[in-house]
Design a protein around this nucleic acid. Structure first.
Lengths: 252, 252
DNA sequence: ATAAACGTTCGGAAATGTCGAACAGAGTAG
DNA sequence: CTACTCTGTTCGACATTTCCGAACGTTTAT
């Protein structure tokens, strides 16, 4: 998959350990042979890695296959902590979902991708945090485009160089010039629209969340089927919420 | 800390990588030198590990120090998935918190420890998932004792051999005979009580959550200051909720 | 009962992680 | 403004480790 480890002073063994973790995370449960096959390493090697993770309590055996253990839940909470420090972000997401009666979400930029940090489906919500932690290319979601539009040009350049503009649907922007035009429109309007660019038949309206200093802190969006998402109605709501978060930072 | 890696076919490099992750997770942010000092390894070694994690997108630099990245949030969600498969568990925790008007939680047994999976403080909750993912010795919490009481004797033996009975407060059970007596009482009554054994001034009532097959699936408990926690009132509520979860499994 | 698949152990060859020293850069105190 | 200290970074060489393949034991399927 990646050869980055050898290139540039990384540790290939550690790299492989992470690959093993990813294999276990991307499916529910895998055995020694399955891990070895997927990573194209010897069974005995896969076994050694799994043993390391098991001895340390990071994975466990259930029904004869290995699974990620709850230690990752602890690490995940630790990783999320910087956002939990500002509880009003989660509150605003819930407010937004309640008022708009569609899904609302807050995404954070990380390593040039957008990551779902909070999500709410309003008062009548299915209580599970579906999609939390999921990474998605920034150019393919409304909140991501809203953030991109705030980045300096060279940062966008670097991002596109590294990841390209992978298509999620037929509507995804895959052309650099088209992206620039879209970002320019976002800056003019102050909000971004996603018209089936990440999932067919899903429309979203997103706005950037800035710190008082003007740094991009994340992106806020609401999404749902097109007939329930009217940008003219929702843009002010989303931008307002984003701005309220910005103001809350003042009192920290 | 641990020398387990060398002993028994583990990979010491991978072991060290996990240690680096733990250092970053146990505090907010650490630099190369700090990691090296804490693990007593060369700065250049710590640097190599951090680079590996950084190149793979697992950690990131913020304000000049390294922090866990949101990729761990994704792994954490994957680790939690087996419980999210049964949404009624989370629902029952919330019900329990609403009805008792104190905190309610569901803990899962893993690697001989109890891990907070769900937690609710009722309708007027602070919405953050505080304590989720935290690991705690089973003998020191109500839900943990409730689970322990269901384990076969040799499993309790193995657990005590491995971890001992570390004290959290002056009230924590640290004597094996005393633990056995306590577990026997739990079995008689059907529920466990925690009287300041994990935190001073916190009382809890817990019950085991079993599968229809009789396996221990987890533990449910409510907790709060003693004057708000009357075991005679709450035991039936907690045991009832635990039993309802058991019944829900039937329809899966 | 036989076969096939899986997890596990082991030794040796080859690859790689570790260390320390040296370099560069940022920040601070004088 | 300079000197000093702290940080993060690079590099080469040695020693350690990882990795593989083959063989063994165990379970599941035919």
């Amino acid at each position: 998959m990646r050869e980055d480890a050898a290139t540039g002073g990384g540790l290939s063994t550690g790299d492989r350990l992470l690959s093993v973790i990813e294999v276990l995370g991307s499916q529910d449960g895998a055995g020694v042979t399955e891990v070895a096959d997927q990573l194209e390493i010897a069974k005995s090697t896969a076994h050694a890695h799994l043993r390391t993770l098991h001895d340390r309590g990071y994975i466990l055996k259930r029904d004869g296959t290995y699974h990620l253990g709850l230690r990752f839940l602890q690490l995940g909470q630790a990783a999320k902590q910087p956002w939990d420090e500002y509880p009003f972000i989660k509150e605003k997401v819930e407010e937004l979902a309640d008022e708009s009666e569609i899904r609302a979400q807050f995404l954070a930029p990380e390593h040039d991708e957008a990551v779902y940090v909070y999500r709410s489906t309003g008062r009548h919500s299915v209580p599970t945090d579906s999609r939390v932690g999921v990474r998605i290319p920034m150019h393919s979601v409304a909140a991501g485009k809203a953030m991109l539009a705030q980045f300096p040009g060279d940062r966008v350049d670097a991002l596109v160089d590294r990841h390209g503009l992978p298509a999620q649907t037929d509507e995804t922007i895959t052309d650099r010039a088209e992206l620039d035009a879209a970002l320019e429109r976002v800056r003019e309007r102050g909000y971004a629209i996603n018209e089936g660019e990440s999932w067919e038949g899903v429309r979203a309206v997103g706005a950037p969340v800035l710190t008082p200093d003007g740094d991009v802190f994340g992106g806020l969006s609401v999404s749902g089927s097109p007939h329930r998402v009217d940008p003219d109605d929702l843009a002010d709501l989303v931008m307002g919420a984003a701005n309220e978060i910005k103001l809350e930072f003042q009192y920290e």
